[in-house]
Amino acid sequence: MKIDDKLALNLFHIDKKPHIEINQEICRKCPHKACTYVCPVENYTLNEGEVVFAWEGCLECGTCRIVCDQGSLTWDYPTGGFGIVYRLG
């Protein structure tokens, strides 16, 4: 099952402002690009060696925040009421 199909099942209240931002300059020099392995919704993908980041499907798990040791991420929670809204789990 593709990740996009899974995320289409979830309810999100998407904020206009992203709660995670990355610094492309730093990502370009990153030796491991660990975020592209760990993100459970594949928000970090590689395109011709560059990290491409999307934040809309974020489940706020926090894994990227831990594995990024390059200082590229500005990680915050979405404003109250926004982001993932689990209905079942």
């Binding site: 099952m1 899974k6 099942l9 209905r87 789990g89």
Partner: peptide, 9 residues
Amino acid sequence: ETVEYQAHL
């Protein structure tokens, strides 16, 4: 049928 997907640390 999958109806929700979740993840967390």
